[in-house]
């Protein structure tokens, strides 16, 4: 386990969700669930973040801001789609203004089910994401050393 996985920073973006999953994300960060004890910190700045937590079914106007937040995050990064809306559009999938899932706009690594997703399952999703984050980092380092940079160097 590297320092990256020991203290991942998350950024949260609400892409047309009903708020239910969003407040459960915040609940996971506050006492009782308290993921901060594992070193997971919520940041408002995408440039500081390793993990993007996304909720909601993504509407027309939200596509660009969501893509912007994703693009601003440094590599390696992991995207977690939280709630059933973020996976398929859920209860809103037949609405005229929704895209039907985060993966229609940006690549998603982990899907967390539920409406609203429970804090326990959100924490489980983040833990799963940490493994993926490690793999992505290892792949990046390997690619870097193949191209001549030393392991551990910023790629």
């Amino acid at each position: 386990m590297t320092y990256l996985a020991k203290s991942p920073w998350i950024v949260h973006y609400n892409a047309s969700s009903c708020n239910g999953c969003d407040i459960e994300i915040l609940a996971a960060l506050t006492p009782v669930f308290d993921v901060e004890r594992f070193g997971i910190i919520n940041t408002g700045n995408p440039k500081h973040a390793d993990i993007l937590l996304c909720t909601g079914s993504v509407n027309e106007q939200n596509k660009v801001p969501l893509k912007n937040v994703y693009d601003q995050m440094p590599e390696p990064k992991v995207v977690i789609a939280i709630g059933i809306c973020a996976a398929t559009g859920g209860i809103f999938r037949e609405c005229y203004n929704v895209q039907g899932g985060i993966d229609k706009v940006i690549p998603v690594d982990v899907f967390v089910p539920g409406c609203a997703a429970r804090p326990e399952s959100i924490i489980d999703g983040v833990v799963t994401a940490l493994g993926i984050l490690e793999k992505k980092r290892a792949a990046m380092l390997q690619k870097g050393s193949a191209e001549g940079t030393k392991a551990g160097e910023t790629v």
Binding site: S16, C18, I23, S57, N59, N62, N97
Partner: peptide
């Protein structure tokens, strides 16, 4: 307009007894 989903129009596709679930998801708070 960032959260506009347009589910008021879903009343035309969901029975009035089922629409309660959608009305509830107007807002999670």
């Amino acid at each position: 307009g960032y959260i506009h989903r347009g589910f008021e129009k879903l009343v035309e596709k969901r029975e009035f007894t089922e629409y309660v679930y959608i009305a509830e998801r107007t807002c999670g708070i």
